[in-house]
């Protein structure tokens, strides 16, 4: 009888429904539920994070879990039951973890590095020859590619805002993640995505007006 009872209890704990999770984690949170969620987060975060972290994985996972738990408790009321609670919580935790990974990797980036990105005055970055097509292509192919490049650069120069140019430069040429750029620009990743989207829409329209078909260009490049 006692064994059966114990099993029932154990089962009930690992089979919390969404409503039970929410009730138990709402302030003041039930310690047992928090501890269980912590175990689930650590277990879930470890495998994907291990692919990106080569040192101190355990303490990194611990830190991320701690931050994620606070985050989850903070935004508990935004959970609308669209998935299992655990899936939602892991999603929040993964976002916290990857944001941290990207910040760590780019921690030495400063706003100064982003200055002047919209014009061509960046010193010591790319030598001029990088901008000319230098692969083993036939001369007329090369001329054709240079022409497309010049045309695209002209359209970008003329049609995009300074901010759009700076963002595209940072993301596509420097390879800075949106998460990090958003920090630097004191905005959100969502806003950066929207900025690039607006720029892409504009470029597509202007290229079409100039008789340039992106799909055709891709086949030719």
């Amino acid at each position: 009888m006692l064994h059966w009872f114990k099993r029932r209890i154990q089962k009930a704990k690992s089979y919390r429904s969404n409503d039970e999770w929410i009730r138990q984690l709402s302030a003041p949170p039930d310690e047992e539920a928090v501890a269980e969620l912590r175990r689930i987060l650590v277990r879930g975060l470890r495998p994907p994070l291990s692919r990106y972290v080569d040192r101190d994985l355990d303490s990194f996972v611990e830190d991320v879990t701690q931050d994620a738990l606070l985050r989850i408790l903070e935004k508990l009321d935004t959970f609308k039951g669209e998935s299992a609670f655990v899936s939602w919580a892991l999603k929040v935790a993964v976002r916290v973890g990857f944001t941290e990974l990207r910040r760590k990797k780019w921690k030495d980036l400063s706003l100064d590095d982003l200055d002047g990105m919209s014009d061509d005055q960046e010193p010591g970055n790319k030598s001029h020859s990088d901008n000319i097509v230098t692969s083993f292509t036939a001369p007329d192919q090369q001329a054709h590619e240079s022409m497309i490049m010049t045309k695209v650069m002209e359209i970008m120069e003329k049609e995009l805002s300074e901010k759009q140019k700076m963002v595209i430069h940072a993301l596509m040429i420097k390879g800075i993640p949106m998460t990090v750029l958003a920090d630097q620009m004191k905005t959100s990743r969502n806003t950066i995505y929207k900025t690039v989207h607006d720029a892409r829409v504009k470029l597509k329209k202007k290229m079409a007006e100039a008789g340039m078909d992106p799909d055709e260009i891709l086949r030719e490049l």
Partner: peptide
């Protein structure tokens, strides 16, 4: 803005995939 061939291709790919919504 200066472009290399790789970046140009990436950029055009991104433009080609663009939809308004």
């Amino acid at each position: 803005m200066k472009l290399t061939k790789d970046i140009l291709r990436k950029l055009i790919q991104a433009v080609a995939m663009t939809v308004p919504e």
